[in-house]
């Protein structure tokens, strides 16, 4: 088996196992449907129900770890097969971004008990990896000359980690909005969402993820500009990719401001964060596929 084949196999395995993790976490949520939050008078059946949900949740985490291990093998062996950093085309960008997302999630799982993010994270990972291995896949090939630059490597790593933080923050924001909706509907006392940390805590976690991502994104955009100065002799040329990076940056700056502005805190700020995420994804995929610019270099 060549390293390239190994890589492909590992990526596909990761995609499939992420899907299994989605199923497990869906079962974790579903098994608490309509189950009220009790602090006293707990019956035996009530405890079994909680234990079952817990079991599914732990299974989900276990599956995510297996998938992540396979994912690491996939990305690393891709790099070995290509004899370069595995960041030369959309397939490689997406698989790398997904890897940073799962790693960030697993780190936060230990540090901040983020298991409630498991369903959405795995859903995203399944979609991303599924899209990568089916639509975006290209066989290993050398880089085009424009990508031969350390600034390019720095740029990609920073952008991917920032992107991972934005995605994790965005998913936490979605969970927060779901919980807020269930509280508005008066179903706050039953089900999985009722057992999540408070809205303030969810908001804080989402904020921290974004606050971690934002300086890195700033750096990534700046590193990209320095690279452009080397490659094309201009720092900034309003190429679609550059434009959308800036748009994304400005939207997230708006999010940080909104959190400090009376009347914009909470739900409105959350929605701005999600607009930021849409812009990030459009920049990541849409620009390459739909708009015409220098960054269309990579091919898909």
């Amino acid at each position: 088996m060549t390293t390239e084949v190994l890589s492909n196999l590992a990526m596909v395995t990761a995609a499939v196992v992420y899907l299994l993790a989605v199923v497990a976490h869906a079962a974790e949520w579903a098994s608490l449907r309509g189950v009220p939050v009790l602090t006293s008078e707990q019956t035996e059946t009530y405890r079994t129900t909680l234990a079952r949900s817990n079991y599914w949740g732990r299974l989900g985490v276990g599956l995510t770890m297996i998938a992540a291990a396979s994912h690491v093998v996939g990305v690393v062996s891709r790099g070995i097969a290509a004899e370069r950093a595995p960041w030369g085309n959309m397939y490689e960008f997406v698989t790398t971004l997904m890897l940073f997302i799962v790693l960030l999630y697993l780190i936060l799982l230990r540090k901040a008990h983020l298991r409630w993010l498991g369903l959405l994270v795995n859903l995203l990972l399944t979609l991303g990896m599924g899209l990568a291995v089916t639509v975006l896949y290209v066989a290993v090939a050398p880089l085009v000359p424009a990508l031969h630059s350390v600034w390019f490597i720095i740029h990609i790593v920073a952008a991917s980690i920032a992107g991972a933080a934005f995605n994790v923050g965005g998913l936490a924001t979605i969970v927060g909005l779901l919980k807020a909706r269930s509280e508005r509907r008066g179903t706050a006392q039953v089900g999985y969402l009722a057992r999540l940390p408070s809205l303030e805590r969810l908001d804080t976690i989402a904020y921290r993820a974004h606050a971690f991502g934002f300086p890195l994104w700033t750096f990534a955009v700046a590193a990209g500009a320095i690279w452009a100065e080397f490659a094309w002799g201009r720092f900034w040329g309003w190429d679609p990719k550059e434009t959308w990076s800036l748009v994304t940056w400005v939207i997230y700056a708006g999010y940080l401001h909104a959190r400090a502005t009376a009347g914009w805190k909470g739900r409105r700020a959350a929605i701005i964060a999600l607009i930021g995420l849409v812009s990030f994804w459009f920049n990541f995929i849409g620009v390459n596929l739909l708009l015409n610019g220098l960054h269309s270099y990579a091919g898909i």
Binding site: R115, R195, L196, P197, R201
Partner: peptide, 8 residues
């Protein structure tokens, strides 16, 4: 309490 609730 809320935090440990989240861990379950």
């Amino acid at each position: 309490n809320q935090e440990s609730e989240g861990e379950q």
